[in-house]
């Protein structure tokens, strides 16, 4: 790890140099909101937003991704046999990702990169990416990253971390990948570790929203599952997938075949535990047929099952997207508080 100082003029010149060796991605305003998008040469990543509306997960794990293609034409050789499509896994530079989103990838990795099975699509995309983070000096009021295992200057999952210091960026180069990118961009000025630390401290203090999750691991799964508050918590939910689609850590997907004429492909699409069809059996039986059961699944997964399964904290990085975008204000911070404080038999206000 080493410290750099990059003048903003050098930053712009360096970004220009990345086009070519890298596919460059950064925040871009589309419609009302910023989202990560592939940038063209000459385009600069737009760092004016606090965070993108959708998380950066779509860069590594697109909402719709082709897994296989095939032909159904019996006159062609190897008809009905699945073939992997050719994909671009050349290096990508992701500029301006927030530390919470980068940390989220390290949690999602636990699911897609397991000792038994590897999801090749996710793993190859992730391996192709170099993440240049942008630290948050002005966290949103709904951010609770510091109590969700990360923070505005957290380096987990990042290759380079930038901190905006007016006319220049203070930067930390964290990995081999980061070194390569910095070299390609030609950034070399010596940095100031002390100033960086001071900014990090100040930013951390600005995150005022906190959740308590310390007692979750000690709870009995079936007690929480049978707790009386789920019906009340779920009442307002309209069963849309907003929370799960905006979430940087949600990874559930569906596999669908689509055929046009005789040519077909198998797709991997984001899916959501909020939808009744997610768990519906072919027979019509549905283990999570009720709205309250699905809302419970989402929070139990994030705040209990994940905690128990991996021992890596909660399945949430505190980015606050689901909190601010939920059409009916179902707030994970409140749910975490209730779950964390729940004792069977004791009354709990919802």
């Amino acid at each position: 790890m080493r410290d750099l100082k990059i003048a903003k003029t050098d930053w712009a010149k360096g970004v220009e140099k990345l086009f070519g060796p890298y596919r460059v991605f950064g925040p871009k305003k589309e419609g009302l909101f910023h989202n990560f998008a592939r940038l063209e040469k000459g385009e600069a990543p737009d760092f004016s937003c606090k965070n993108t509306r959708l998380s950066a997960k779509g860069l590594i794990y697109p909402q719709t991704e082709k897994m296989f293609e095939y032909t159904l034409d019996p006159n062609k050789p190897d008809h009905h046999v699945h073939k992997e499509p050719v994909k671009d896994y050349s290096p990508m530079a992701v500029l301006g990702i927030r530390p919470c989103d980068a940390k989220a990838f390290t949690l999602v990795k636990l699911n897609f990169d397991t000792p038994e099975y590897k999801d090749p699509y996710w793993i190859k995309n992730y391996a192709a990416a170099t993440f240049v983070g942008l630290a948050c000096d002005a966290p949103c009021h709904a951010c609770f990253c510091t109590s969700a295992g990360t923070g505005p200057y957290d380096t987990a999952g990042l290759d380079v971390l930038l901190a905006d210091a007016g006319d220049f960026f203070l930067a930390k180069v964290l990995t081999e990948k980061g070194e390569k990118l910095v070299a390609a961009a030609g950034w070399a000025g010596a940095g100031d570790a002390g100033a960086f630390e001071a900014k990090a401290k100040a930013a951390g203090d600005k995150v005022v929203s906190k959740v308590n999750t310390a007692k979750l691991a000690g709870k009995v799964t079936n007690d929480l599952h049978a707790a009386p508050f789920w019906e009340d918590l779920a009442f307002a939910c309209i069963n849309c997938g907003t929370c799960t689609y905006l979430c940087p850590t949600c990874w559930c997907f569906d596999i669908q075949d689509e055929v046009c004429g005789t040519e077909g492909c198998r797709l991997k699409n984001w899916d959501s535990c909020m939808y009744p069809l997610f768990t519906m059996h072919g027979t019509g039986h549905n283990p999570r047929g009720e709205k309250a059961q699905r809302v419970r699944q989402r929070f139990m997964h994030k705040l209990k099952y994940f905690v128990d399964k991996y021992g890596a904290g909660i399945h949430c990085v505190g980015c606050g997207r689901c909190v601010t975008a939920c059409p009916v204000n179902i707030d994970i911070r409140r749910v975490a508080e209730i779950m964390n404080g729940y004792e069977p038999g004791k009354d709990c206000a919802v």
């Binding site: 719709t64 991704e65 082709k66 689509e258 046009c260 040519e263 492909c265 797709l267």
Partner: peptide, 8 residues
């Protein structure tokens, strides 16, 4: 007209 599903 959908000739082939659009993917990312």
């Amino acid at each position: 007209i959908k000739r082939e599903p659009k993917v990312a």
